[in-house]
Design a protein around this nucleic acid. Structure first.
Length: 847
DNA sequence: GAGCACTGC
């Protein structure tokens, strides 16, 4: 397992709470080094140790490829100096992350010199020193964790044993101080006595890191069983696994490991495995019993992602089957339900001859939804574990606010004028609101007296380029106050240090699903109570805080308890395909924790049928449906790959599908609109956006390959990012597309699809597009708008399309979005005669 | 001639 190590240097020994601080560090690095996302191990060392430098120097395996510095006490920056010294000594260095290095002009001379030396003389630097992660307090892990153990060994510099013990002791102390530690024995008893257990654990209880360790020590991995813990997000799976490996004093990937898409850091000795819930669902396709797991813990179940919901349904069935596999006596007096009989039977057939042990299920949730989970699992026992949070004062307005952006502004200034130091986190619904709020703050700032103008604003939302996102982590200069204007990215995905005040206007933008048209419009709605609580909790992570809810308390009582589960508001075609592949034939009868809309199910089944994934009996077709289910893509894209192998253009389609699967490839900042347009033109194809995307990918690939010939891999990737910037391409998206491309290419080869190219003749490729995207065909109307053939909707070509001006007669599109108009995006020109020829199930020529 | 929350395989 090749792993890159990032060395983080901090000066604080004590780590209040553990996972959150690590989480922040990972996020900093994630934003800084997107191409290496997920490939880090982390080591945290105290900076005042001279031997640290020698230790790193000795590691010539190049494992330590990055250094992170916590700038520590403001202005002192000694950690950053040490970091810079390490850089100078170190081989195979990639990047420096450090507060001091970013604002060099603010730092003392030695540091300035050190950073300059580093920046100028090292040719293999990934990027110039970027932004900052100061004010982050790192926990101190044991010395013998991860790769560093080996490097210590290699360098023949052994720390005195007493220090080793001190560190281990430190970790032990931290573990014992967690609220959950007090109930370890009780929890183990509960798990022994109950096949399914619900644990409601507040923030900071330590449940995610500790419970798997308790279970492992309590003998739940005997006979080689694995404890699997699922997370809705990749970053959480990775960071928690790393922390737990450290606490156990083992190398990551051995006893403790993680698995996420594109990355599997586990081995045959792994007993505690963190993973994304989507990945476990994928695993179930290969092993429908999840037979290697003795316990499965579903963490953050309250988020109710579509993956979590499907997983819960699957686990319930698997648990029944497995307990039946052990003994014919029905466990818990709960008879197998009739409507699930067929699934149980089909899975049972496969397991004949295998010895199955019962499965323990643990659902962990942060909110008070325990009842829903408990009822779903037949009255399963629920227990509560106390958390550790600082108190947050909740303030409401007296009257409802009509303009919440304006109310937000007033509140920002009120806090700034009247409250003590501390940064402000504001939750807004989207980019537009954030940008206008930011503008308004700056417009009003000059009205304040000069001494009060020390207010800085930072936007953060997911489509913002990484280097701009990073700025929210910059330390607040002395005397200033920081205002972070965020979407709900700051609710769970990103933790920003230093927040004392939260402003919550109570609104959120959510994606919905209209089964009748298949459109998934984004609409602004009120938050749920659970969401409001989550937001206010962001003020109490480092000390007591305040949360300003911009609505009256009576309004809070009227809010829904929790956010509508995703499964009730999304396209279900992928869910259905997955369930069918798991052997669940009766989708409407499937025991979902919350039943999706019947019409949505039928619509999605119809789509799958038209794509040829389902037979007339609505069974998964073989081989088309089987193959589609194996591909980690939207069903239409999967179908496109299968057809492309017949049209001899799979090489092209793999690229186009990978490019369509990621967020927007092009990045056009408002201030450089004209330049970005020119850049796009050099790639654009008269046939449409699909071939334009193909051109971009191929151009980038060619660039990278040339660059690889004369440079190290790191340097070549750095050059690619530069190339992206020059061409107004989002390098994060392109990297993601490259990852997807290599994954689906592997998938295609495993399925014996022929990966061949159509060469310079793009006709077969366009015909293939027509044969795959026939449901998204549109015809030009006399007024220049288009009519989408399957829905009958009037649509318009989005201005970002290369065909915006050309307006061909007949087109296929990738996506329909509703804003002011019904816009279609990613469009290619086709011949309408192809539709009847290639999709006769849908189209016929009129006589 | 327009602007789209967040995840995940």
């Amino acid at each position: 397992m090749a792993s890159t190590t990032l060395l983080a240097i901090g000066s604080k020994r004590e780590a209040p709470g553990c996972s959150s601080d690590w989480y922040r560090l990972i996020q900093v690095c994630r934003f800084l080094l997107p191409p290496l996302l997920g490939s880090f191990s982390f080591l945290v060392r105290k900076s005042d140790s001279r031997s640290l430098i020698t230790g790193v120097k000795g590691d010539k395996g190049g494992r330590v490829t990055g250094v992170g510095a916590n700038a520590g006490d403001r202005g002192k920056g000694c950690e950053a100096v040490v970091a810079a010294q390490i850089c100078v000594h170190c081989i195979g260095l990639l990047c420096v992350v450090g507060g001091g290095l970013f604002r060099r002009e603010l730092l003392p001379k030695p540091l300035r010199l050190a950073s300059k030396q580093f920046c100028l003389h090292r040719s293999n630097i990934l990027a110039p020193p970027l932004a900052v992660a100061t004010q982050i307090i790192f926990p101190m892990p044991s010395m013998d964790s991860g790769n560093f153990k080996q490097s210590q060994h290699n360098s023949n510099i052994n720390k005195p044993k007493s220090e080793h013990f001190a560190r281990r002791q430190n970790i032990e102390q931290q573990r014992k101080a967690l609220p959950i530690a007090a109930v370890e024995k009780l929890l183990l008893e509960e798990v022994r006595n109950n096949d399914t257990l619900i644990i409601v654990g507040e923030t900071g209880s330590g449940k995610t890191t500790q419970l798997p360790q308790y279970l492992n020590n309590g003998g739940f991995c005997r006979d080689g069983g694995i404890i699997g813990i699922t997370q809705p997000r990749r970053v959480a799976a990775v960071t928690v696994a790393k922390r737990v490996a450290e606490e156990c004093g083992v190398a990551l990937g051995q006893k403790v490991g993680y698995a996420i898409r594109f990355e599997d850091v586990t081995s045959s000795s792994t007993r505690i495995k963190y993973m994304t819930d989507g990945l476990l669902l994928r695993e179930a396709l290969l092993d429908s019993y999840l037979s290697k797991y003795s316990v499965i813990i579903v963490d953050e179940a309250h988020e109710r992602t579509v993956h979590t919901d499907v997983l819960l349904g699957l686990l319930k069935t698997v648990q029944k089957t497995r307990s039946k596999g052990v003994s014919d006596a029905v466990k818990n007096g709960m008879p197998l339900e009739k409507h699930n009989g067929s699934e149980v039977f089909s899975t049972l057939k496969q397991c004949r001859g295998k010895k199955l042990s019962p499965l323990k299920i643990i659902i962990m949730s942060a909110s008070l939804d325990a009842r829903v989970f408990s009822e779903y699992f037949g009255g399963a026992r629920a227990v509560h574990v106390q958390g550790r949070q600082y108190p947050v004062d909740i303030l409401y307005t007296r009257q409802p606010e009509t303009d919440y952006v304006d109310a937000t502004l007033i509140t920002i200034f009120q806090i700034h004028m009247e409250e003590g130091p501390g940064d402000i986190l504001v939750f807004l619904t989207g980019q537009e609101e954030i940008e206008s709020a930011e503008r308004l703050v700056h417009e009003r700032l000059p009205q304040l007296s000069e001494s009060k103008r020390k207010l800085l604003t930072f936007p953060i939302f997911s489509s913002l380029p990484s280097e701009k996102q990073m700025k929210v982590f910059m330390p607040t200069p002395i005397g200033f106050r920081k205002v972070i204007l965020a979407t709900n990215i700051a609710e769970t995905s990103v933790t920003i240090p230093g927040i004392k005040y939260v402003i919550d206007p109570g609104m959120v933008k959510v994606r919905t699903y209209e089964a009748s048209t298949g459109i998934e419009p984004l609409i602004i709605v009120k938050t749920s109570k659970a969401q409001a609580l989550q937001r206010s909790g962001r003020a109490g992570r480092e000390g007591p805080g305040k949360c300003y809810r911009l609505y009256p308390e009576s309004e809070f009582d009227k809010l829904k308890d929790s956010t509508t589960p995703e499964i009730k508001r999304c396209n279900l075609s992928n869910v259905i395909l997955h369930l069918k592949a798991l052997g669940v034939d009766d989708i409407i009868g499937f025991d979902f924790i919350e039943q999706p809309d019947r019409i949505a199910i039928i619509k999605s089944m119809e789509l799958l049928f038209l794509l040829g994934a389902l037979t007339d009996e609505s069974k998964l077709s073989d081989p088309v449906g089987q193959r589609m289910a194996r591909l980690p893509l939207d069903p239409i894209y999967s179908k496109a790959l299968i057809i492309a192998s017949e049209f001899n253009c799979l090489e092209e389609m793999l690229i186009v599908v990978a490019m369509l699967s990621v967020e927007s490839i092009f990045y056009a900042p408002r201030e450089k609109l004209e330049e970005s347009r020119i850049a796009l033109k050099s790639f654009s194809s008269p046939e449409g956006d699909h071939l334009t995307l193909l051109n971009v990918y191929r151009a980038s690939d060619e660039f990278l390959q040339k660059s690889n010939l004369v440079n190290s891999k790191e340097k070549a990737e750095k050059n690619l990012r530069k190339w992206c910037k020059e061409n107004f391409i989002n390098s994060r998206s392109l990297k993601h597309a490259r990852d997807i491309h290599s994954q689906i290419q592997r998938n295609a080869e495993q399925m014996n699809l022929h990966v061949t190219s159509c060469g310079d003749d793009m006709l077969p490729f366009r015909r293939c597009l027509a044969a795959s995207f026939f449901l998204n065909a549109a015809l030009k109307q006399p007024d220049g708008t288009y009519r989408a053939l399957s829905s009958g909707l009037t649509v318009q070509i989005h201005p970002s399309s290369v065909l915006f001006r050309t307006k061909p007669e007949c087109i296929i599109f990738d996506e329909l979005v509703r804003t002011n108009h019904n816009y279609i995006r990613n469009i290619s020109r086709i011949d309408y005669l192809w539709l009847a020829e290639l999709a006769p199930q849908c189209y016929a020529l009129q006589e």
